[in-house]
Design a protein around this nucleic acid. Structure first.
Length: 293
DNA sequence: CCCAGGACCTGCCAGC
DNA sequence: TGCTGGCAGGTCCTGG
């Protein structure tokens, strides 16, 4: 499901019920997600106050009173929902309406704010890990992440520099979380279309020999900013699984120009092209060969 | 080191 | 109705 706008949407949904509240009960209903849970996973969460809920790239990070940080990744199909606990249930028991999907409710938190938080992930590509805050910079999952695409240090010059020796496609470079951290298949396709750049272009063409950013790089950074900000405003994109934590759908999918629009007409004014699809590095690329060069 | 491809897992949908 | 193959918003690991 989730790229940066979906994760940010989830963060904003969880923040009001998590920040300042205590994790009264934590439960992991299976031994692993993508990785095994740490043996002390539950123990390090239970009883802790969540002092802040942040986001880095596609990770959610809950700061705990103990000095630990709970790192959460949604993988492809992870989602959180916030429900009201059933007052009939015994304390410490999670008791809520079961859906067809509840077999994949893997992690539950009861918050002192009066909310139960349920993490559901059918494919189990997501994961959670508790890390000491003072060890964050050594954390392998975070260590190699590039700049936040909406952060101050990410600009055309920086993007051009990190692409200057890359022989791979521009599409693959933008999906590389070391280059810029938070984009995924949808928003890379969309940003490339909006900047009229071909996904097949060699990444190094974003810079000159002197590593100066080209106008292409500037356009691309502008398009990344616009598409991510617009998608966050829309509550993300809902194709299959993504819901806001309230259960509402995001609606940015209605603003897609290329993603999942194979065969449809390109919306670029006076272009007249047709959206095509092909596979790059094992993933679908959607684009218009007429206006993306 | 860089890069492409496979692996991980389940669900859904189109086509037979 | 099945059943089957292909596809899905991510990223780690391996081998060239």
């Amino acid at each position: 499901m989730p790229e940066l706008p979906e994760v940010e949407t989830v963060r904003r949904g969880l923040q009001p019920v998590m920040e300042g509240a205590k994790i009264v009960v934590a439960e992991a209903r299976r031994p692993d997600l993508r990785f095994p849970f740490q043996p002390d996973f539950v123990a390090r969460l239970q009883g802790q106050i969540v002092t802040g809920l942040g986001r880095r790239a596609k990770y959610l990070m809950a700061d705990l009173g103990s000095g630990d940080v709970l790192l959460m990744h949604l993988g492809m199909s992870g989602s959180f929902r916030v429900i009201k606990p059933d007052n009939e249930a015994a304390p410490g028991e999670f008791h809520y309406p079961k859906g067809k999907d509840s077999a994949h409710d893997h992690v539950l938190f009861r918050m002192s704010s009066g909310a139960d938080i349920v993490f559901n992930d059918p494919r189990r590509f997501g994961y959670m890990k508790v890390i000491a805050r003072n060890a964050l910079e050594d954390e392998p999952l975070l260590r190699d992440l590039g700049p936040e695409p909406l952060g101050n240090e990410f600009d055309a010059a920086m993007l051009a520099r990190s692409c200057q020796d890359k022989t791979t496609s521009l599409k693959a470079a933008l999906l590389d979380q070391r280059v810029v951290a938070g984009l995924g298949n949808i928003y890379v396709c969309e940003a490339l279309h909006r900047s009229h750049l071909s996904p097949r272009r060699i990444a190094a063409t974003l810079s000159t020999k002197k590593s100066e950013p080209t106008d292409h790089a500037k356009r691309l950074v502008g398009a990344i900013h616009t598409v991510l900000n617009d998608a966050i405003k829309a509550g993300g994109s809902s194709l299959r699984d993504h819901r806001q934590t309230s259960g509402e759908l995001g609606y940015f999918q209605h603003s897609f120009k290329v993603y999942d629009r194979e065969g449809e007409k390109c919306t670029t004014p006076r272009c007249g092209g047709t959206i095509k699809r092909f596979t790059q590095n094992g993933r679908s690329t959607f684009w218009c060969s007429k206006c993306q060069k």
